[in-house]
């Protein structure tokens, strides 16, 4: 049993921390890749990466560093920077300060103060690499602290579910920008950067060796059963967390969540590679994103924003009392 508002905050802590981590990693890799200046391919990579984070088309070609700074610390009123994501995660944690462990709070709080302090510095070009690395490390540590100090009950499942849904959506966006291109447009360099942005280069090499082919990469990032950032792995994880919290919800509402997450998992568990790489591949991947949104909405409706009339004593024959 947990307050609905608290469950919602846990869910968003998961989403925002994942969003911040992903953005740090993508920018870190992009800025390093951009060092190979002049190469058309490097420029394309930067363009795709920054568009995946929400930058306008071509923005990265004008001034990649300035664009990266904006994506990190945001301009005035910017709602999608790393700074904002960390702030929002901390704000959600503050909302549920009584429910999270002191270790979790301290890590997130410290990270927030560091981001806020770095945002005031002028020499972004010099400090960015160190900043991204430290922030990613902090967020990894945060995940470890969550797993190691918090009870693996409802709150934990809402947090992990939020993180995994966010992760799936972020990966989908990267894939969409890469697989939408003509097959020849991306060379080894571009594929390696993509794998890096998904934190998957080393795991990929272990399974597929150092051959970078579009279909092999799709196979790995979409259908690999063990890699924690493949869409298939994410879908199965989402389904597990939904099963874990589902026992508590009203039966009708729970059914929608279970049905949607199960369908997504099944679609990825039983997909054949041609569906992903063929001419309908883009639609296949887009469907994953749509499913994530539908799952997210169903969870919200079942656990958080349910109508009072359905749950008043004596009005419902279902659900747990």
């Amino acid at each position: 049993m947990m307050l609905s508002r608290v469950a919602d905050s846990f869910y968003w802590i998961g989403r925002y921390t994942e969003r911040a981590e992903h953005a740090c990693r993508v920018l870190q890799i992009t800025l390093t890749a951009g060092l190979e200046a002049g190469a058309e391919e490097a420029e394309m990579t930067t363009e795709r990466a920054m568009r995946a984070l929400g930058a306008a088309p071509m923005a990265a070609r004008m001034d990649a560093l300035e664009e990266a700074r904006l994506l990190t610390f945001g301009g005035k009123g910017d709602l999608s920077s790393i700074h904002t994501a960390v702030f929002a995660a901390r704000e959600n944690a503050r909302q549920v300060r009584d429910q999270i462990t002191t270790e979790m709070w301290e890590r997130l709080n410290r990270l927030y103060f560091r981001v806020r302090e770095t945002a005031t510095k002028q020499n972004f070009g010099q400090i960015s690499a160190g900043f991204f690395e430290e922030t990613i490390n902090d967020l990894h540590a945060f995940k470890g602290i969550v797993s190691g100090t918090m009870s693996h009950g409802e709150g934990f499942h809402f947090l992990s579910m939020g993180r995994t849904i966010e992760r799936a959506q972020l990966i989908v966006r990267l894939l969409d920008l890469h697989f939408g291109e003509k097959q020849t447009a991306i060379g080894d360099f571009g594929w390696v950067q993509l794998l890096r942005m998904c934190c998957g280069l080393e795991p990929y090499l272990r399974v597929k060796t150092a051959t970078f082919r579009r279909d092999q990469i799709a196979d790995f990032l979409v259908l690999d059963p063990y890699f924690p950032r493949s869409l298939r792995f994410c879908a199965n994880t989402i389904a597990q967390h939904i099963d874990a919290v589902g026992a508590l919800a009203d039966e009708r509402a729970r059914e929608t969540c279970t049905r949607l997450s199960g369908r997504l998992a099944a679609r990825l568990n039983f997909a054949v590679l041609e569906e992903v790489t063929g001419k309908n591949g883009q639609a296949f991947i887009a469907q994953v994103a749509d499913d994530c949104i539908a799952i997210s909405d169903a969870v919200h409706a079942a656990f958080i924003s349910y109508s009072l009339a359905d749950r008043l004593p004596g009005t419902s024959t279902l659900g747990v009392r």
């Binding site: 049993m1 947990m2 307050l3 609905s4 508002r5 469950a7 409802e154 919290v245 508590l248 919800a249 009203d250 656990f303 958080i304 349910y306 009072l308 749950r311 008043l312 004593p313 419902s316 659900g319 747990v320 009392r321």
Partner: peptide, 16 residues
């Protein structure tokens, strides 16, 4: 939330 002069809180498992 209040219903019939009883106070409830909204939880993930319904009203308590």
């Amino acid at each position: 939330a209040i219903h019939d002069n009883v106070v409830y809180m909204r939880t993930t498992s319904g009203l308590k």
